[in-house]
């Protein structure tokens, strides 16, 4: 048993290596910022989506304000899509950026940007990662969030089109997800080189709400693997929303070190299936109990997740910007105390 008093970074890396600890770390690997954090550190959305300095400052707020044992950036899943030509609305203080308009149809020739990580907000994220490493990297794990290739492809052509093409023109699906994976691989190399300790790739459009396990194996998994190929150093975590009970094995087949999942999966069931082969991250519900419940509800859920054997306790999905601070405090306290 590794005892208390560990640095958050060491605790998180040990937990991601599935080591036995006196308690799991409590982290936020998905979108971590809330309006209260923004007010506390004087940095707000949408500025923090584009300015590396502000991005790094807001990333640290999750630790500074609430005691999460991680610092995570950026705060959305639109960085890649925007560089590839989608129209993105950066939102406002309590609303995350969204893809408003897709860039391609199935017959489009796609210009793959050569030095992707030097462009647009990808460059800002890489810069912010370096800053965060310098400012907090000895204490806190530097966690960088990116978008999974199936989700990026959905942004490029419209997710509904992409899904439909699985039946009508599967070769177009492969074409776009592959392009996304190439771009993503270039981006991940730069993020790793900038000093990320953990890369959390979210691929929400590859969830069981959209795809069967077989479809996931054919259209999502190979490209997740390709995105991570040759990325040495950081621990790799795959986040997928929805009820992933039946998808856990498929997610593991991508070779990642950790799986981040939502509360729609029974935590005990997830632990039983995964059986410490990779680290489990999650899965305290963001809407219920975090957004709409009481601190007591949150505390109960967090303790249940920790007791079930999750390697890291975390919100099951990105925090909504208006999650009440007392609920977040209750989450952190329930695990630490």
């Amino acid at each position: 048993m590794l005892n208390n008093g560990m640095k958050p970074k060491d605790r998180v890396l040990a937990a991601l290596a599935c080591k036995k600890l006196d308690r799991p770390p409590v982290v936020c690997f998905t979108q971590s910022a809330t309006v209260d954090q923004m007010d506390a550190v004087g940095v707000h959305w949408p500025d923090a989506h584009t300015d590396p300095e502000k991005m790094a400052t807001l990333a640290m707020a999750a630790n500074k304000v609430f005691g999460f044992e991680s610092a995570r950036l950026p705060f959305c899943l639109t960085v890649e899509a925007e560089i590839m030509g989608c129209t993105v609305d950066l939102g406002k203080v309590d609303r995350t950026p969204m893809v408003k308009k897709h860039a391609y149809d199935s017959s489009s020739e796609v210009d793959v940007p050569k030095d992707f990580s030097q462009l647009g907000r990808a460059k800002a994220v890489v810069e912010a990662t370096k800053l965060l490493k310098k400012k907090a990297g000895s204490e806190l794990p530097v966690v960088v969030g990116t978008t999974g290739p199936f989700t990026i492809a959905g942004h490029l052509v419209g997710t509904e089109n992409l899904l439909l093409w699985i039946v009508t023109e599967p070769e177009s699906v492969h074409k776009f997800v592959k392009i996304a994976a190439e771009v993503e691989n270039n981006y991940l190399r730069a993020i790793a080189a900038a000093g990320a300790d953990v890369i959390v790739m979210s691929d929400p459009s590859a969830s069981t709400d959209m795809l069967s396990g077989e479809m996931f194996d054919e259209y999502a998994a190979p490209y997740i693997k390709q995105s991570f190929s040759g990325i040495e150093g950081p621990k790799n975590v795959l986040h997928i929303c929805g009820d992933t009970t039946l998808l856990l094995e498929h997610m593991m087949s991508t070779g990642v070190h950790g799986l981040s999942i939502e509360e729609k999966v029974q935590p005990e069931k997830a632990v039983e299936i995964v059986n410490n082969r990779v680290a489990l991250v999650g899965n305290v519900g963001v809407v219920k109990p975090l957004l709409q419940g009481t601190p007591d509800d949150v505390s109960r859920e967090a303790k249940r997740v920790a007791a079930s054997g999750f390697n890291l306790v975390a919100p099951g999905c990105g925090l909504a910007a208006r999650v009440p601070s007392p609920n977040i405090k209750a989450l952190v306290d329930a695990v630490k105390k």
Binding site: E160, L163, L164, W165, I166, V167, T168, D209, M210, L211, S212, M215
Partner: peptide, 14 residues
Amino acid sequence: KKEYYLPQVLLSAQ
């Protein structure tokens, strides 16, 4: 019954 997933449903709808 999970015989169909979204892609098939979307195609049927169209």
